[in-house]
Design a protein around this nucleic acid. Structure first.
Length: 282
DNA sequence: CTAGGATCCTGTCAGC
DNA sequence: TGCTGACAGGATCCTA
């Protein structure tokens, strides 16, 4: 799915396009994708859009909220005079909306629309009041984001997971928020650490470098508009991509490492596809 | 408490 | 062509 940088890209886009618009209608094409009562959001104006880790939080005038989690394959597409889309990179950006994978869509009072597409249906939109938001298990257990965590706090967190592969630890949102499969691999590459190394084998310096790497790769991605769809409107139909521009290892297996020239490899760690350079990560 | 694996769901692709 | 299994930018639930 969209990881933190992609979700932040969506947040900024929605901030530009849907603030102060009133929700005129909600169409639910897949029950599983929509939790809670839509009556609480109908007729309400969008007040602000927050983000916690990979979750988007949309506040309405009546103090109800919508939490949106895109999980693996969610995307949000705003269609008005301009079109804005971000999230999962697969297809659909040029399709007519609603499309084959549209699960929920909103119509605003000015006739514009917001579409929630989600191929695998792992994502969801949840209508919540202030209390359910404040007590939500995902949000309450979410760890700080990399830039809000001191090196010491990161190190202390690691000490609780001595026996796990480092990649598994940083993918767990209870330990550090916002890191997903791309940035876990990219962060390990930055720090020259093999992703399956047991935490117990890492030095404090390794850990510092890894935290620095996570901040760095995610910030670079945010600055470039997330890894997906930034330029999806290009006439030739290609999608702009953080991966093409910045990824050093992710989905680059078989290609040359930009740092040492070795061939990037792919394997499996923590149940996920894992990319690394055998030459300069150890 | 931690660690590891199965699971939710749909689609695509490689290999018979 | 048709089938089969592996895998996918996530997180939870269950078990040990």
């Amino acid at each position: 799915m969209p990881e933190l940088p992609e979700v932040e890209t969506i947040r900024r886009g929605l901030d530009k396009f849907i603030i102060n618009k009133k929700i005129a209608d909600v169409s639910i094409l897949c029950e599983k994708s929509f939790r809670g009562n839509k009556d609480f959001i109908l007729g309400q104006k969008i007040v602000k859009i927050d983000r916690r880790g990979k979750a988007l939080l949309i506040k309405l005038e009546n103090n109800f909220w919508m939490m949106i989690h895109l999980r693996m394959t969610g995307q949000l597409i705003f269609v008005g005079k301009e079109k804005f889309a971000a999230g999962h990179p697969d297809g659909g950006f040029t399709e007519e909306m609603p499309g084959r994978h549209t699960r929920v869509y909103f119509e605003f009072d000015d006739g514009t629309h917001l579409y929630f597409n989600d191929l695998r249906k792992f994502g969801f939109i949840s209508v919540m009041d202030e209390l359910s938001l404040a007590t939500d298990p995902f949000l309450t257990k979410l760890a700080p984001e990399p830039w809000d965590m001191s090196k010491d706090a990161f190190w202390e967190m690691l000490q609780r997971h001595q026996n796990s592969p480092i990649k598994a630890v940083i993918l767990d949102q209870h330990n550090i928020a916002g890191v997903g499969n791309i940035y876990a691999d990219e962060g390990c590459f930055y720090a020259k650490i093999l992703p399956w190394r047991k935490v117990s084998t890492l030095s404090h310096e390794d850990a510092d470098l890894l935290l620095e790497g996570l901040c760095s790769v995610m910030q670079a991605s945010i600055d470039s508009g997330g890894s997906t769809m930034k330029d999806y409107v290009r006439a030739d139909g290609t999608k702009g991509s953080y991966l093409e521009k910045f990824a050093q290892v992710f989905r680059r297996e078989g290609l040359e490492c930009a740092r040492c020239g070795s061939e990037i490899q792919k394997t499996r760690t923590a149940g996920r596809g894992t990319h690394y350079c055998p030459g300069c990560q150890e």
